[in-house]
């Protein structure tokens, strides 16, 4: 039976931008023409403490909200989620659905034989993917790890293209009103900030694109089908 919905769980550490990633994923999917919803885990996430966010993409209106208990995709943003148990679920893949996908930001294999056996029995594919390394290589900062993860996700599951990803990233970073940090800035400072922002968006896009291509190749090798049929016709504005 073809999926009608993709539920994505993103265990990460505070500061890695998993919430932003969920937002961009949902916005991109919405732009592509799917129904989409994103939300963070509801807690006081501090830097380097466990943090988690969720995105849902589907063919029909999505009512479901809150934690994703039964994910189709799990994106592990940091090896410590696995090695130090910084996850809200134990083991980190609990609840994963049959024929699911796990993307782990790692350069080495972190799974035990037991893990692998369990995941194989569910026909779950695992993509070990050095997202942080890619981010540093392309964007020059580890802060773009989340962009690499987003690119990898859509490269692997298909459905949402690069145009939509670009739209998602822009909508996140080009917010109109900024009311935080220090006193009101001068116009020139704002301008500089904006220029910096455009540069940032450029770097982020490149990172996501790099990861997208990589994951797409991998999916082809693995023989992965797109996770969802093409989007239903929707009014986009």
């Amino acid at each position: 039976m073809m999926r009608k919905r993709v539920n994505i769980r993103m265990p990460a550490l505070g500061g890695q931008g998993a919430v932003t990633a969920a937002h961009i994923i949902a916005t991109a999917a919405d732009y592509e023409g799917y129904y989409a919803v994103s939300n963070p885990f509801f807690g006081a996430e501090k830097r380097m403490a466990p943090a988690e966010s969720y995105a849902r993409i589907g063919l029909e209106p999505i009512f479901d909200r809150g934690e994703v208990v039964y994910p189709d995709v799990i994106m592990v943003f940091h090896p410590q989620v696995i090695t130090m148990g910084k996850s809200y679920t134990m083991p980190f893949y609990s609840g994963i659905k049959r024929k699911g996908l796990i993307i782990i930001n790692t350069e080495e294999d972190l799974l035990t034989d037991e893990d692998k056996e369990r995941l194989e029995s569910l026909d779950v594919k695992v993509l070990n993917f050095p997202a942080t390394k890619l981010a540093i290589d392309i964007a020059g900062t580890e802060l773009s790890t989340n962009m690499a993860m987003i690119g990898a996700l859509f490269g692997a599951i298909g459905c949402v293209g690069l145009d939509a990803i670009e739209e998602g990233i822009k909508s996140r970073f080009l917010k109109k009103f900024v009311a935080s940090g220090g006193t009101a800035s001068l116009d020139s400072a704002l301008e500089r900030k904006f220029k910096k922002k455009l540069e940032l968006i450029e770097k982020n896009l490149n990172t996501a694109k790099g990861a997208y291509d990589l994951a797409q190749r991998w999916a082809g090798e693995q023989g992965l089908e797109p996770f969802l049929p093409p989007p239903p016709k929707k009014v986009t504005v």
Partner: peptide
Amino acid sequence: DGFFVSHTREA
């Protein structure tokens, strides 16, 4: 419901 609506992004 806090979070479920306040922190959830949707169309």
